[in-house]
Design a protein around this nucleic acid. Structure first.
Lengths: 334, 334
DNA sequence: CTGAAAGCGCTTACAG
DNA sequence: CTGAAAGCGCTTACAG
């Protein structure tokens, strides 16, 4: 094991103090008016010794770590995986490193993750908050930690957030159904009090009402941790004796589960049942026919979140709420 | 901003030294025979002040960070996203946190990532090495950093690794084709010198030879950074005038690209063309017919990698090579 | 132009 | 049983 090279080693080698080495290696040679030949010597020796700064030491001294804590619901879900990649790439551009964890929509897991990230002194948080995590987030905020919520937020507190225009997204999906003549439109959503789900449901309901379809409103709720079995039960009710002719899904995972069921029951799309999915997925492309879906602008979402967070870390006091526009990608399932 | 609570605050409050507080909070009260009433008092005050240890300070002092650096090729690829989730979950069980990054199969990006992770003093690395990264990895190893390579490794150096039985996986896929009567079997692989790809290709070739099909051996190579256009070109050659009757894909991404092309050219599976994919993907389930594929034991792969790495971090000197068994999931595309 | 020194928040060998 | 003190590797206000 080659022992680590420290500032002191360079200082000794060059014959100056660690202070000077620190200045030079941090580009403060002009400001501190260090002699050019010393500057050169320091750079040369640093290179020769393959000096790597110890960011842990710097962090302790500076009180900041150039690290972002990212908590998503589940990194193995493609929506979050893509978001994580964008956030990681974007953060790297500004010299920030990402530490991540998945809450699995469980508030105790989320609390453990937040604690871990605090202990690791991350400079800020990007969080997809789960149910019952309001108090944790509130406490985190009150302790002065920069936070950006993503995908969802809590109306009870005013924190930075970046979310989809959830209400509009399902509202326009319903309109798309109605324009094509579908009226018996059901929605499959997660059983969740979170704002993103509630807004998607509200968008569906309002659109139904505005189209005079109050009587047809029906939302099937799936529990996150029992998605498979709940979906099977719903499929049995819904598909055994088909009384609806259109189905709107509230997330990509729900869409996939639903499509498995639709195939199992041999339902023809869109003749027997029109369908609109959420988020986009390769499966939507391969399904016969390709599935129409509500697309989220992932790239913008990730970049905005990082931008806002870095502003906060730099001291900005203003609270920013960003609502990004969905796009309805029309294919042949509706 | 509530100011951070340190050991000193607790020590002052209780009226003891920081040393004692540190002992108690680290469970050394027995060993150090601290008086029970003091132990109790310290715990009480720590709780009251909501003390959170500063892991940065501890890391600097201890010279270890309880942090694992994870470098995958691309976190937005479901294979790596699932692996990342397993590695994260498994590491958390042992009190380790994961810092990750995607190399995008680019050795300069990989080098930057490794430097960042070294600067952050991670205790060890789990890496999916990309082409031309041998020297980086070698240097990393020579500097005494614990490393586990995953998915691929370098035959030139003996490092810990956890990989699939790549040779066997494609060998048995070819046999599966042959058993069903297919003989004109092509393979689509990445143009890569990496061992995983080379072994998958070798498995294909050897199996072809062993079945007396030397003449039919043909491997189409796709460049990672030009996958889409390369695949289109290959599809044109292969599918315009179909001269083969079976196709083996070397990764999940290649499988998906290939299936897009197969659909575009309206090729019937398995009548016109039999297909075997890699890694598994929801698309394989939805394709008509469902796609037969080579499955990797992701759970084992992630867990093994973490286990081996933690052993190394704890000082184990032995080098471990793990080769996990693939499973051929038979559906109806072959 | 440059250096000595303090200090970030811990852990731990040592002394009593 | 307990505390004073050193030290991890940096940064930076201060003094000259």
């Amino acid at each position: 094991m080659a022992k680590k090279v420290s500032l002191k080693n360079i200082a000794d080698e060059v014959g100056v103090s660690t202070a000077l080495v620190s200045y030079v290696l941090n580009g403060l040679e002009k400001e501190k008016r260090v002699r050019p030949e010393v500057v050169e010597k320091i750079h040369a020796v640093a290179k020769e010794l393959k000096y790597k700064p110890n960011l842990i030491a710097r962090s302790l001294r500076k009180g900041s770590t150039s690290t972002i804590g990212l908590i998503v619901a589940d990194i193995s879900n493609s929506f979050f995986a893509q978001l994580a990649r964008i956030i990681e790439d974007e953060s790297a551009k500004y010299g920030y490193t990402v530490i991540f964890g998945s809450s699995h929509e469980d508030h105790s897991k989320s609390e453990v993750l937040i604690d871990t990230l605090i202990n690791r002194q991350v400079d800020g948080f990007i969080i997809t908050p789960c149910e019952k995590s309001l108090e944790q987030i509130k406490a985190l905020n009150q302790n002065g930690n920069p936070i950006v919520l993503i995908d969802r937020y809590f109306p009870e507190i005013s924190l930075n957030h970046v979310v989809l225009d959830n209400f509009q997204s399902t509202y326009s999906a319903v309109n798309c159904f109605v324009e094509k003549g579908y009226k018996k439109i059901d929605m499959i959503a997660y059983k969740s009090s979170l704002i993103n789900m509630q807004e998607r449901i509200r968008g569906y309901k309002e659109a139904m009402k505005d189209n005079g379809l109050d009587k047809e409103i029906s939302v099937e709720e799936v529990r996150f941790h029992h998605a498979k079995s709940d979906m099977e039960k719903i499929a049995e009710e819904l598909f055994n004796d088909l009384k609806i002719n259109a189905l709107l899904f509230a997330t990509n995972a729900l869409s996939i589960y639903g499509l498995y069921a639709i195939r199992k029951y041999n339902i023809t799309i869109p003749d027997e049942l029109a369908v609109i999915g959420f988020d986009g997925h390769e499966v939507f492309d391969f399904f016969q026919p390709p599935i129409t879906y509500i697309e989220q602008p992932l790239e913008d979402m990730g970049k905005e979140a990082v931008k806002i967070l870095l502003d906060q870390i730099k001291g900005s006091k203003k609270t920013v709420h960003v609502e990004l526009k969905h796009q309805l990608i029309e294919r042949h399932s509706c």
